[in-house]
Design a protein around this nucleic acid. Structure first.
Lengths: 183, 183
DNA sequence: GTCTATATAGAGATAGAC
DNA sequence: GTCTATCTCTATATAGAC
């Protein structure tokens, strides 16, 4: 796409640094100045690349949208499968990259901000996936259970404070959980 | 303790309102003014009851400390039990009150703030519990898995965005998850 | 215990030169 | 594309009267 010659493009560098800071200190605990300092540039320069602070985190989230669309498509194509919940959850798991993990951490660290920014947005494609997985008559308990299955990676991330698991460790445990929860 | 005559004490009223706002809009997304307005008083009045904004959220968390201490004690007393992980997780589950759930939501909504406020504090008693549950030679995977088991309620809460489950629904699903994960 | 008034600092954001 | 300088607003927090 872009004419990437030597290092990374400035915009990508900004996103990279912002992702780390937002995840660690929180969106509102991170000032534009913090990001600029970490990059060795001034606040003003950031506004050349992004119209405002929200725009930075919006860009971070936009990068992941297509993945959920792909999941929805996959689920539609396999709607008749037996054991669809487990299969879909494992399919989602198999697509988990380090980038997605970072985005998950970002979202977990900034729930109120993400909620604010996504309310009024397009309807969550994840909801469509659950409709397909569960059918129209699922109990509340089954709805909750299915969501936990699908959020296995999130659950491991949430629980992993204090343990320094590698990406492989996290995915392996998430996979084990998915299997144990879907007999 | 306090001479509670008519309504709740003002301090408790403040904590109640602050808990809701911090959970919904986030700690830094909620101003002292927001809290004061919701209570029909002025910002200054809040500073009579709490030395600063951090103090409010610190009080909120302090209220839960004894519960973890109790869990640690229970685990020490049952250290020789077979199936200790499941038993301890279910014991923890059985002590889950609406107040604890709210505290969990607060913590999940404000991870960076909580981290900042608890770093350098006393060592997490939860860590001691996991030491007892796992022993010294547990693999990273087993450590992660045990933490997920214990965080079943958190996992359900995290996954339950978009589903309006009652307290009973949430606890029932969490219990089911604990059982399924601990054969 | 609650108020009015105010101090102070830091945030996000813009203008305009280079 | 990055800078300096600056604007403006809002936040936390305090002083002191009642």
């Amino acid at each position: 796409m872009a004419d990437k010659t030597a290092g990374a493009t400035t915009r990508d560098e900004i996103l990279k640094v912002a992702l780390d800071l937002f995840t660690d200190k929180g969106f509102e605990g991170t000032s534009i100045r913090d990001i600029a300092d970490a990059l060795g540039m001034t606040k003003s320069s950031l506004y050349y690349h992004f119209v405002n602070k929200d725009d930075i985190v919006a860009s971070l989230m936009k990068d992941r949208e297509s993945e959920v669309d792909e999941l929805l498509e996959w689920t539609e194509q396999h709607a008749e499968l037996n054991g669809l919940l487990r299969a879909a959850a494992l399919h989602w798991l198999d697509g988990t990259t380090p980038e997605r993990i970072k985005a998950m951490r970002l979202a977990q660290s900034n729930q109120p901000v993400i909620r604010r920014m996504t309310e009024g947005a397009r309807s969550d494609p994840f909801e469509r996936v659950f409709d397909l997985l569960l059918g129209p008559n699922a109990s509340i308990a089954d709805q909750l259970h299915a969501r936990v299955v699908f959020n296995a990676v999130n659950a491991v991330l949430l629980a992993s404070r204090g343990v320094d698991g590698s990406l492989e460790d996290i995915l392996a445990v998430a996979r084990r959980i998915v299997v144990e929860l879907t007999p």
